[in-house]
């Protein structure tokens, strides 16, 4: 007989005690918007629920000197209405606004969206381009920081070990020379899983691109950085020819699948289109 248990720790100390006691049997739950459907489909069968949705340390959005810290249990609806994030991470806010529908956003959390590691995750591409790091609490209660760029390993597999928990997402504050965009194409305007999504952050200096970060959803088994295309832009002057050739290159960089949402050819086509739009939108912000 399966005696499922549920605990709701009030703080990280209580959380630590529970993790110590139950070890790898724990399943963390906050919004539950991914977990509960997975339970119904019997993809996951949690034995011990640890509800982290009301632990203060996981809930705040704090602006420090160089970095923005987002508690992992912050709801997506709170991400979209945060003045700090609207100011400092507008592409993350843009992605959050397009996640699911309003009811989902009222429950789903940013940490949950990352940990679920869908290849079409909405928050992952912006976080990849923002150079985010994840603060992770391990099973012993020790804390480590890992770049999100090393976090997604393969289809729905992340660097999180059983019993580990993302507690914060750290985003370095962007400089004035940085501009970016997020765009998503879905099959409808609400509750749409991305066919293709693209986040971009550019580090510009009067038409000269010092650095580019491009990340995509829906194009690979994981949310992924387009490292090769980034190299084409790096240390180059952005002009029509470069945009055109980079778009073409980006469309070939990945091996997307064909599924019910779109074919491989359509996804590649969208990639080129979204790249041109993203780069032009980003440059407009800089007045380039």
């Amino acid at each position: 007989m399966n005696h499922k248990e549920y605990f709701k720790p009030n703080n990280t100390q209580e959380l630590g005690q529970l993790v110590k006691e139950f070890g790898s049997k724990v399943t963390f739950i906050a919004g539950g918007t991914d977990l509960i459907p997975q339970m119904r489909d019997e993809v996951k069968s949690p034995e011990v629920f640890i509800d982290i949705s009301e632990i203060d340390e996981l809930l705040s959005i704090v602006e420090e000197d160089d970095v923005i810290s987002i508690g992992a249990a912050t709801k997506i609806s709170e991400v979209t209405s945060s003045f700090i994030l609207i100011t400092h991470c507008p592409i993350l806010v843009s992605a959050a606004e397009q996640l699911g529908n309003i009811l989902t956003r009222n429950r789903a959390t940013i940490g949950g969206n990352i940990a679920n590691a869908s290849p079409c995750s909405d928050t992952a591409p912006p976080l990849l381009t923002l150079n985010a790091s994840l603060v992770i609490r391990d099973i012993k209660g020790e804390v480590k920081t890992q770049s999100i760029n090393d976090f997604f390993l393969s289809y729905k597999k992340t660097a999180l070990q059983q019993g580990e928990l993302i507690t914060q997402i750290l985003i370095p504050k962007k400089s004035e020379k940085q501009c970016g965009s997020f765009v998503k194409i879905g099959q409808r305007n609400s509750a749409a899983i991305s066919v293709v999504s693209m986040a971009m952050m550019l580090d510009m200096d009067s038409g000269h691109c010092r650095q580019a970060k491009i990340a995509m959803g829906g194009m690979a088994p994981i949310p992924i950085r387009a490292l090769k295309t980034e190299q084409l832009l790096k240390n180059n002057t952005i002009n029509e020819a470069l945009i055109e050739s980079s778009a073409h290159h980006l469309a070939q960089e990945f091996l997307p699948i064909s599924d019910i949402r779109g074919s491989e050819e359509y996804r590649r086509h969208l990639t080129a289109v979204l790249f041109k739009r993203s780069i032009n939108n980003s440059l407009k912000q800089q007045g380039e």
């Binding site: 549920y6 919004g31 509960i36 509800d51 989902t104 429950r107």
Partner: peptide, 13 residues
């Protein structure tokens, strides 16, 4: 006061 799907919320929550 927040609108949510009750099918995606645990009763215990």
């Amino acid at each position: 006061g927040i609108a949510v799907n009750s099918c995606l919320t645990l009763a215990i929550q």
